[in-house]
């Protein structure tokens, strides 16, 4: 994974992207027990495009290819890992990127989402495995529930929490299904 992080740091320093943070299962594995995944989710702030309002990932793919990346369908393979580049497409993800925290992986500086934003994005994505991930964060005591409840309210995710098996209301009672 080191190669992927070095490459993402390089395109950040070169101004191709405005910053990035790791989310998904790899980001979650910083805080909780590892779960299987096929790729690294790299959420990126796109650098402002010159003279165009259209979002394009082409400059990012081109920059990564120049430093050894291999484009494979919707991924760029960097070292052993396929990396999926996901632009910050909505306020929740933009805020998650702004609030991301600096960490190191094998001596390489990188950024990851906080547990609360990882859970909020998982709720927003809403697949079964995403709800399961939120349940794991809660079970393992790896998320601040007050902060997460705040994000759930702010981003309109209240209807989703019933899908998390161990979600509790403010009074500590399980949410009725």
């Amino acid at each position: 994974m080191k190669e992927a992080l070095v490459a993402l740091n390089t395109i950040t320093q070169d101004g191709v992207i405005g910053g990035y943070a790791i989310g998904g299962a790899i980001g979650a594995s910083f805080y909780i027990e590892a779960t299987s995944t096929e790729d690294i989710d790299a959420f990126v702030f796109l650098a402002p495009a010159k003279g165009s309002s259209l979002i394009s990932l082409a400059p990012i793919y081109d920059a990564l290819k120049k430093i050894g990346g291999v484009v494979e369908k919707e991924h760029v393979r960097l070292g052993n890992w396929p990396v999926q580049i996901l632009p910050a497409y909505k306020p929740l993800v933009e805020d998650a990127l702004r609030e991301s925290q600096a960490v190191e992986f094998a001596g390489v500086p990188t950024r990851i989402f906080t547990p609360e934003y990882l859970c909020a994005i998982a709720l927003d994505t809403g697949r079964t495995k995403d709800y399961y991930r939120v349940a794991m964060f809660i079970e393992q005591g790896a998320v601040d529930m007050n902060l997460l409840r705040g994000l759930v309210d702010r981003y309109g995710l209240s209807a989703k929490v019933k899908n998390v098996s161990n979600w509790e209301n403010q009074d500590g009672q399980p949410t009725p299904v």
Binding site: S29, A34, S36
Partner: peptide
Amino acid sequence: YHKDARALTWEEKVASIERMREAS
């Protein structure tokens, strides 16, 4: 087992995810 798995470093956890990927 789960307690041990949570106590691993991030690098160790990612290495275990890589092994899971290879196995699948």
